[in-house]
Amino acid sequence: MVTIDALRQMGADVDDGLARCMNMESFYLDLVNMALKDPGFEKLSDAVKAGDNKAAFEAAHGLKGIVANLSITPLSNEISEMTELLRKDQEADYQGYVDRILDMRNKLSAL
């Protein structure tokens, strides 16, 4: 189960995220756990594997809003960068982004 400390350690702006949840820790952590299980991660990974940038953009855009609202900053930064590249349909190492994103998500989920 992810904790406030673990989130702080990985660089999340916990205070900012908590503020959005009226400083209710349990509500915040529930939402973080929900976010980590969001099917958008798998959709993003599948779309990148399939080379479907449009589907990848939609998945990334959805995830971006969620993790940004929870202020899981490192995850949010990676997803934001990826979303903007996908929006412009630019050539990029999208698989590298997916790997880093899933790695962070998995580490937090493993707690």
Binding site: C21, M22, L31, M34, D38, G62, G65, N69
Partner: peptide, 12 residues
């Protein structure tokens, strides 16, 4: 809003 987490934050 299709994302439940965003829905929940806004609802709160």
């Amino acid at each position: 809003e299709d994302e439940p987490i965003n829905q929940m934050i806004l609802a709160r």
